[in-house]
Simulated scan of single mutants.
Amino acid sequence: MNTGKKRITLEDVGKFCGVSRSTVSRVINKSPLVNEETRRRVELAIKTLGYVPDFSARSLMTRRTETIAISLPDIRGGFYPEVLGGADEEAVRRGYLLLVVFQGSRRPRSHSLQRIISYGRVDGALVFGDTVPDQQLRLLSESHVRVVRLAAPSPIPEIGSIVIDNFGGALAAVRHLSQRGCRRIAFISGPPGNRDAEERRRGYQQGLQECGLQFDESLVAEGGFVRQGGAAAARTLIDRGVDFDGLFVANDEMAIGAVETLLQAGITIPQQVCVVGFDDIELARFVGLTTVHVPVREIGMHGARLLCEMIEQGRQPETITMPTRIIERVSTARGGSLSLVRPGGD
């Protein structure tokens, strides 16, 4: 609908602050060729006049949509919102919109992201884990689509990736428990076939070996990376009647469920059992859970930065490994005592 209000143009902004149209364009595009004083004048004029860029015209000139997609398996829990927040922060900083697509996980396998890309609606995509299978990623790469995979290795060099040091983090968790005097360390794992889960299990087993401890399959239970699964896995360990004085849980969601089950069973933490999680989500800080810190927000930020630079500057894809480290809290601290806490959520 035409409201009769004249659209503010680049020329209007230039006349208002006494510079050329091209200078205004350089400021909008964050060109380093504009000095700071001129940049401030132009930005003030843009704000005063209420100038809004004509993205459709700009898209025709640059052949870009200035939109990137991110595919996630879910938005629940403490992990995915942090990844999304980091990606959005970096995308906005660089002038891109972020289009979120949910696929994979418990949803039927879909091709939503691939359809969006084929319609030319985005300039590139961030793909979390296995939300897009390796074969589909190869096809996207062959179509010259710029892609960065998050929290999983890339199947081919043409696709960038941001990966977590899962093995090293799990190894550090077992070492930490051993240093706290634990000799029977149980493990609650993630789902079979999941890359993160497999690497964390491998780190657990290597940690036992390095600490001179025997691997015992009866000390391992699977929790599916969800809180209810962690609670059920802890109950399974208790019902087996096996003795354990340490518990490494492959993510914080499961660890919080496991802690509740242990405390409800009258097992004190850390006096009888020391517990370590993985990820360092916000709830872990709330309940006092010792955990392996993963820079979750930075996964999204680094992924978006790499993707934008691949789009804008032709940067070559690469693999960036995010480091992990132990954050000690009450659940393993000497003299500590963890109380029963029921955080919100399912």
Rank of each mutant, 00 (worst) to 15 (best):
L150C: 15
G223Y: 00
V259N: 13
P192W: 11
R202P: 04
I185R: 00
G224Y: 04
Q179N: 03
A255H: 10
I162Q: 03
I162M: 07
G160N: 11
C211H: 06
A265M: 12
G207Y: 00
G212D: 12
G229P: 02
E260Q: 15
A152L: 15
S154C: 06
R184F: 10
A231P: 12
V220H: 11
I256Q: 05
P191G: 11
G168Y: 15
G246W: 00
R184G: 03
C274R: 02
G207L: 00
V276D: 02
D239V: 13
G190Q: 02
R227M: 10
R240F: 05
R202G: 13
R200A: 02
G241R: 05
T268Q: 04
G181Q: 08
A173R: 06
I267T: 13
T290S: 12
V276H: 01
A250R: 09
V148P: 01
V276K: 05
S218F: 08
R285V: 09
D165R: 10
A284G: 12
G181I: 08
L237W: 13
L150M: 14
E253A: 08
G223M: 08
L150V: 11
L262G: 14
S189K: 11
G241C: 06
R227N: 15
V249I: 15
I269E: 00
I185L: 00
V287I: 14
R202F: 11
F286W: 12
F248A: 04
E158R: 05
G288A: 11
Q271R: 10
N166G: 15
A197L: 14
I162Y: 12
V148E: 13
S154G: 08
G257R: 07
Q206Y: 04
A265K: 13
H176Q: 13
G160H: 03
A258I: 07
F278Q: 11
G266D: 05
R149H: 12
E199K: 01
N251Q: 06
V174H: 00
I185V: 04
D279W: 09
R180D: 00
R202T: 09
F248P: 01
V163D: 06
A233N: 13
P192T: 14
D280G: 10
F225L: 12
G277E: 05
G277W: 02
G193T: 09
N194L: 10
E198I: 13
H176E: 02
D239F: 09
Q179I: 13
I185K: 00
A284T: 07
E260D: 06
L219N: 04
L208M: 03
Q205C: 11
P153Y: 14
A152H: 08
A186W: 03
A186C: 07
G224L: 12
G223N: 02
D243E: 15
V174L: 01
G224N: 04
Q264P: 13
R149S: 03
G169F: 03
